[in-house]
């Protein structure tokens, strides 16, 4: 609680002593957080070694994961860290294409999700469908030929009700975040390990 209040004071007070203390506390937290990565790696190894030893369904994938982890770690240690040419090649040849492939699926998933979401079951879903159709039609050139006011209505939907809704959500989120932060700072909530 004291540490939290000191970091909060650092934000509001322009004093060298308070700023230095705040920076020191933030850096300490960052170092402690970095150790969490080690905990995460231990967790991954424990879970997947367990899968392999118990021959659970999909255990072969666990072997692949553990081997890939050893290769990546070994490459990093032997070639001088994440900035090395070999590590960059590893990321550019394996991780980035895999990520791009996965994200490319989003296009198809958006269609299937939209198909389900466009079934009118309630007033909310009815409004959702109506505005989605207006915005979709307003984005395509043929909309002007269908009705020249469609792009204008689309712009109004995006700039007035959609923006107002998003701002309302953000305002509520800001208040919710402030309330959550204050509860933690005042020691009402104790999410940390006892």
């Amino acid at each position: 609680m004291t540490v939290g209040l000191l970091v909060l004071a650092d934000f509001f007070v322009n004093s060298d002593a308070v700023n230095a203390l705040g920076l020191y506390l933030i850096r300490t937290a960052s170092i402690v957080a970095a150790f969490a990565l080690v905990l995460g790696m231990v967790n991954v190894v424990t879970v997947h070694l367990g899968n392999v030893s118990r021959q659970e369904k999909g255990w072969a994938y666990s072997v692949v994961l553990l081997v890939a982890m050893i290769i990546t770690l070994g490459t990093g240690f032997l070639t001088g860290g994440p900035g090395s040419t070999q590590m960059r090649q590893l990321f550019e040849s394996v991780l980035f294409p895999l990520e791009a492939t996965l994200y490319s699926l989003l296009a198809f998933f958006v269609v299937t999700a939209a198909y389900r979401a466009f079934r009118v079951k309630s007033l909310e879903s009815g409004l959702f469908v109506t505005f989605a159709i207006i915005v979709l039609l307003g984005q395509v050139p043929i909309a002007v030929r269908l009705w020249d006011q469609l792009p204008v209505i689309k712009d109004w939907v995006l700039e007035v009700p959609a923006l107002a809704g998003a701002r309302g959500i953000l305002l509520g989120v800001a208040l919710g975040t402030a309330a959550t932060g204050l509860r933690v700072l005042l020691g009402i909530d104790r999410p940390y390990v006892d």
């Binding site: 957080a33 969490a36 990565l37 905990l39 995460g40 967790n43 999410p191 940390y192 390990v193």
Partner: peptide
């Protein structure tokens, strides 16, 4: 996803 949440 974020390892800092793991112990919590």
């Amino acid at each position: 996803a974020n390892p800092t949440l793991l112990p919590l």
